[in-house]
Amino acid sequence: MTKVTIEVNGKKVSKDVPDHTILSVFLRDNLNLTGTHVGCDTSQCGACVVHVDGKSIKSCSTLAADINGSKVTTIEGLVKDGKMHPMQEAFKKMHGLQCGFCTPGMVMSAIDLLQNKKNPNDTEIREWLEGNICRCTGYQNIVAAVKEAASKM
């Protein structure tokens, strides 16, 4: 067992978990933060993307013990004062989702893109979202949503 102490969405949490506990499992099963989705579970699909110390990573391929002491932001941590994050607003406005399964990962990944590049073009958005797979939208409206968010952020 390992004691994992991390800050999740601004709140300090500490749990004893088996050494091999994966971060996505820690978030979903131990902390009940089920907004982080697990799709392929082998780091291909990107539904599980969260931020660790400000950078987007795939939580299904990271050990909880490995990020001990870090700050984690999940999709649940984006809402401020009851208002959605501009990226979430943009996905809603531009119909950047259908079934919504991939959306938490898409949103977290897209926010990291805008941290790296303020006004990305279509190609840069598509390249960055390489690791996020959506089977509904055909990506057009996701790209439109990221551009919309870029204009607001």
């Binding site: 050494d19 082998t42 780091s43 990271t62 050990l63 490995d66």
Partner: peptide, 23 residues
């Protein structure tokens, strides 16, 4: 273990098993 981008998925798929992971 370094980044774990291959080793962790490999362990999850049962392609590799170890008693000790040294990060």
């Amino acid at each position: 273990l370094a980044g774990g981008m291959t080793s962790i998925p490999s362990m999850k798929l049962g392609l590799a098993t170890y008693k000790d992971i040294i990060d």
